[in-house]
Design a protein around this nucleic acid. Structure first.
Lengths: 217, 217
DNA sequence: TGCACAATGTGAGCTTATCTCACATTTGCA
DNA sequence: TGCAAATGTGAGATAAGCTCACATTGTGCA
């Protein structure tokens, strides 16, 4: 994960080479290969962690050469980043969907609860989420992206709540929601690291705590 | 960080060689060298992250050879682990001290608030804490230690609270405290990653939220 | 003091990972 | 069909963690 740091700052531009020629069938095959790479990477990361994922094994299991792999992703971090991005899109979609039709505070409580539940299931079903995340923690750039994601998630919640609580201070609400959503992720990681029974309790405790804070004053 | 995983499972036994001969002066020098190594490692990790910390540079800056370095620590993870352990001891001491003379719920609130404040200052002053922590996240063993630490911290809080709230369910209290202390660390990491102003707000929000949950029912 | 032996220190070099690049192959189009 | 352009290939360059055979230093005893 550490090698070639000195030269990889120029790597971003290569990333644009990942799509094929301007012709459709090529583009399609290119997309399929990328999917395959990400899917293989997910498997390997889930099995052994992102550190132990070997680029050579990703290439081999994807049925391509190392050289090809590096045309799809400029470096190892880019694969981690792509997976993190994908997980973030999933989580954002969950949040948007669950909050879509909220009209009252009571509905918000139910929606938030459902949202956390969905998220918890997602973590339980996709153990790689945790390992991808831990892969992002060692890298300043990826860390910033994670931070931005939490902020986006917080904003979704805050903007929904702002309509329901016109009297509330919007800035304070934004901070609250940012913190609550950040801690939501931390809670999920904690919950899947302990026994299912304790995990359940932790998630319930978090829900209560978060809702109390979000809907107070 | 990833290399030699296949052979490093036998590394633990070497760790016992870190103390010098059975003679005092030798032991002392050995201890001093170890301190120097950890101090140098802290510097390097604070500057560039644990991934970018090079064992060769740790050795060089500590004024010893690579071979010697590997007699004090069996592998790179062991240095991270030692630093993590040290930070944990510090945090546990803070918690114990601040909770020592608590007799009423009101005092608990003040003590908890002070404790979080101390902890926040610690994070602000020691940026390496964050990077050491991120270094632990990629390794299952170190992760388990982190989990245990949070549990210990939670137990300290829970046992203090149990005396003040005899009616409370102790098991539920333990879970609450475990979660709250885990999220406390997550909050600190978040707080030091944003502007000081927002960090301040986040810490205050966390304190309110945590106290509300801990002292409820 | 001088000697045997244990403890500790050393760094060249082994292993294995990421990533590159010169070349081969395939594809898209006239 | 032929020829660019795009894509694929894998041997090898580079570099990091770690080892091990040997050198140096320190300790206890005659």
């Amino acid at each position: 994960m550490a090698k070639r740091q000195s030269t990889s700052d120029t790597g971003a531009k290569h990333h644009d080479m990942r799509r094929g020629a301007r012709i459709t069938p090529t583009q399609k095959r290119s997309r399929e290969r990328m999917e395959r790479i990400l899917s293989v990477a997910t498997e390997l990361i889930a099995a052994t962690g992102s550190d132990a994922m070997r680029m050579s094994e990703v290439a081999e299991r994807s049925g391509i050469s190392i050289g090809s792999l590096y045309q799809y992703f400029p470096d190892k971090r880019a694969i981690i980043a792509a997976l993190a991005e994908r997980y973030h899109e999933t989580s954002r979609a969950c949040i948007s969907e669950d909050l879509a039709d909220v009209q009252t505070l009571g509905q918000f409580r139910d929606a938030f609860s459902a949202l956390i539940e969905t998220y918890y299931q997602l973590f339980l079903e996709q153990p790689a989420m945790r390992d991808v995340w831990s892969g992002t923690q060692a890298d300043k750039t990826l860390l910033d992206i994670e931070l931005l994601n939490s902020r986006e998630n917080g904003d979704l919640v805050a903007s929904t709540l702002a309509k329901l609580m016109p009297a509330a201070d919007e800035a304070a609400l934004a901070t609250k929601a940012f913190l609550v959503m950040s801690l939501g992720e931390a809670t999920m990681r904690l919950a899947i690291s302990v026994t299912p029974e304790e995990g359940r309790l932790i998630v319930e405790t978090y829900k209560r705590m978060a809702l109390k804070e979000l809907t107070s004053k």
